[in-house]
Simulated assay, not measured.
Amino acid sequence: MLLLDIRNLTLELETSQGLIRAVDRVSLSLREGEIRGLVGESGSGKSLIAKAIVGVLNQRWRIKADRFHWCGVDLLQLPYDQQRKIIGRDIAMIYQEPSKCLDPTALIAEQLHESIPNQLLKGGWWNRAREKRKKAIALLHKVGIKEHQSVLESYPYQLSEGVCQKVMIAMAIAKNPKLLIADEPTTALEASTQAQLFRLISSLNQLKGMSVLLISNELDSIARYTHHLSVLYCGQLVESGETAKLLAQPFHPYTNALIKSVPEFQPELAPKSQLYALPGSIPTLQHLPVGCRLGPRCPNARKECVHTPALERKQHHFFSCHFPLQYKEPQ
């Protein structure tokens, strides 16, 4: 069953110079019980798409889509109150900068208690405070915080960025959402804790059937945990498919460059060899190239690339390129 079904999502920002198209006709789908990775360089629009799904973009942004369905319901056609009710019940998000998302004037205990729905508590209303306390402690233990007493009695500014990130994850999974959106969930965490949190997200998926949208700019950190990958470049979807097949046979030059830039995916690379990298850098929103936005950096670019390539499909593998790698046209 499709939980999330987005077709041709476009996000435009109103500026004094006019509209800037930050996300250009991106399609994304997520099935029940699936972990999908969304990967790309910083500035590619990953976080914008996540914020559009949970409805937290401000009024300067214009959201357009041919389809924006959640469990068969078109969210863009609903009144704001109904939209917030559905999103608040079924979707949770782990934000990239937890210290800015937590309330600096409230104790962690208050914020964590507020995130726990009453319907998940046992007993009558008179036991509610005690049950929330027990639930909050259990959530902190689940995300790897052992010193729960000191954390619950602290304000966010008294905690490290890593502990704040763990608290955000605990708040996100408190209501057992159908979809968990993790936007760079391991930022500012040490390597051992990163592995622990990825295992936690994987176990939530396997044991509770929770769908996960895992967002990162590090391909190697999420590839082993995802079923499908979608690759973004500068607001355009360049390739999407099953993780194993996409890593084994990428069709888009940008996906190929991401894979070649990771030593883990290059076992035959000689020691101290220089890793592959595309020339140049990702363009700013104010100076976007026409057509394929990778064009100025692409080693295979030709004059046809001034036109935006259509999204092509080979079985369950999608790619958007005029001159795909290792691809033979069907006879």
Rank of each mutant, 00 (worst) to 15 (best):
L213R: 06
H252C: 08
I87L: 00
Q59L: 02
I282Q: 11
A310T: 12
L3Y: 15
R128P: 06
Q119H: 15
E242H: 13
L189K: 02
T308G: 03
N58R: 08
S44W: 10
G162D: 07
S99T: 12
K142H: 12
N256H: 08
Y157N: 07
P177N: 02
P104K: 04
L197M: 01
H148Y: 15
S42I: 12
K245D: 01
P177V: 03
Y157E: 01
L325R: 08
A50S: 02
A257W: 01
T255I: 09
C305Q: 03
C234T: 11
A22I: 04
M210F: 05
G123L: 04
L197E: 02
Q82M: 03
C292V: 15
G72D: 08
L288P: 05
T255V: 12
G40A: 15
Q82S: 06
V143S: 05
C321N: 00
A270M: 05
L38C: 09
E329F: 13
M171P: 01
Q236K: 10
G295I: 13
T255L: 09
K166N: 09
L76C: 00
V73C: 11
I108E: 06
W61K: 04
T186F: 09
E304C: 14
L285V: 08
L9M: 12
Y276Q: 07
L197V: 02
A174L: 02
D5P: 08
A195G: 10
I63V: 06
G235F: 04
H287P: 06
V167M: 11
K208V: 00
I145D: 01
E184K: 10
Q196M: 13
Q194N: 05
Q165F: 07
S221F: 14
Q315G: 02
E161V: 04
I259N: 00
P279T: 08
A195Q: 14
S115A: 00
T308W: 03
G33S: 05
N176F: 07
H113V: 12
C234L: 14
L120K: 03
L246I: 07
P283I: 12
K46M: 09
H69E: 09
E34Y: 11
S216V: 07
D183F: 02
L207D: 15
S99C: 15
L237T: 06
L237N: 03
L179P: 07
P98I: 11
L275T: 10
T187K: 15
R67K: 11
K64I: 05
R293T: 10
S261H: 13
G18R: 05
P98E: 12
Q17F: 13
S42N: 10
I282T: 10
C234Y: 06
L57M: 03
A301M: 00
I108K: 07
K166G: 13
